[in-house]
C-alpha cells in the first residue's frame, strides 16, 4: 500500500533508524562513563529494529534480524554475562568480581576502563535489544496465528 502517510513513515524511519542504532550503541558502550548502560542502550537499539519492522513489514524486519537470530542472541547475551562472572572466579576472585579479579582498569574517564563492567554492559545491551525484538516478534506472530484461528 503505497499511501503517502506510509511513504513518509517509511522514509523517515529508514533515515532515523541508523542514528537511533548508533545512539543505542553509544549508550551501551558508555555505560560506565555516563548515565545509561546496557538496559537503556539495548532498549534504544531494540526499538530501532522494532521501528523498522513496524514501518515496513515483517519480512524487511526479519532481514535486519530474524526471530531465530534474536532469540539466539538473547540467550547468548545472558550467557556472556554469566561467563564473565565465571571468568572472575577462574581468575581467583569472587563471582562477578572486577578489579580484584585483575580485569584491566585503564584510565578513569576513558572508553576502555572499568574492566568487566564494560563487558557486562555490552552483553546486557545485546540481551536487552534482542529480547525486545523477540518479544515484538512473539506478539506479532501470535496475532498472525490468531487470524487463522478465528
Amino acid at each position: 500500500m503505497g499511501t503517502l502517510e506510509n511513504q513518509i513513515v517509511r522514509i523517515t524511519s529508514r533515515l532515523v533508524a541508523p542514528f537511533i542504532q548508533v545512539y543505542g550503541i553509544y549508550v551501551i558502550i558508555h555505560g560506565h562513563l555516563s548515565p545509561g548502560g546496557g538496559f537503556s542502550g539495548g532498549a534504544i537499539f531494540g526499538a530501532s529494529l522494532v521501528l523498522v519492522a513496524l514501518s515496513f513489514n515483517l519480512e524487511v524486519g526479519a532481514k535486519q534480524i530474524s526471530h531465530d537470530t534474536a532469540s539466539i542472541l538473547e540467550s547468548g547475551g545472558a550467557l556472556g554475562f554469566v561467563i564473565t562472572g565465571l571468568v572472575a572466579i577462574a581468575l581467583g576472585a569472587n563471582f562477578l568480581a572486577n578489579q580484584s579479579a585483575g580485569f584491566p582498569m585503564g584510565q578513569t574517564g576513558q572508553l576502555f576502563s572499568a574492566g568487566a563492567i564494560f563487558i557486562i554492559t555490552f552483553f546486557l545491551g545485546i540481551k536487552v535489544a534482542s529480547t525486545i525484538v523477540t518479544l515484538f516478534y512473539n506478539i506479532i506472530e501470535g496475532e498472525d496465528k490468531s487470524g487463522d484461528a478465528h
Binding site: 538473547e74 540467550s75 547468548g76 545472558a78 550467557l79 565465571l86
Partner: peptide, 10 residues
C-alpha cells in the same frame, strides 16, 4: 542454573 536456563534454548 542461570547458565543452563539461557543455554537450553540454544
Amino acid at each position: 542454573l542461570l547458565g543452563i536456563s539461557f543455554l537450553s534454548p540454544i
